[in-house]
Amino acid sequence: MKKIETTLESVVSDLTAFYDYKVWEFLTLNGVAIDEGTTEIQWIFSRYGAIDDVVIYYAPVKNSETVPSVVDLIPSAIISQREIVDMFGITVENSEKGLYLDEDSLSAPLATCRI
């Protein structure tokens, strides 16, 4: 498992340089609440056919910031982006709320870190 730090400004260009759709499988988009108001967003990839070759690009995100969308590059990211929007209450470009949560559900259930 290799972790590479990136920033919100450079993530799209980093991923464009990195992602070859016939070599890497995009696993998912993950979020981890670091502390109040900050979430670590991770883009997780694994290499087809290699043993445990997982690469994670990550960037800390303030709740006020907007995460750029990578859907143009990776079409299947759309659903995990919508999930992140729901679960962490942050905004992602071109991703609307409401994949899982209804209006009266607990909003952003995973945003606060309990530790």
């Binding site: 998912t28 999930e83 870190c113 309990r114």
Partner: peptide
């Protein structure tokens, strides 16, 4: 983080990833 409760469990399930397909 060394406690009885974990701080994050992320589950990516097969169907979830395949919905766009």
């Amino acid at each position: 983080e060394g406690k009885a409760m974990l701080s994050r469990v992320r589950i990516k399930t097969p169907t979830f990833a395949s919905i766009p397909a």
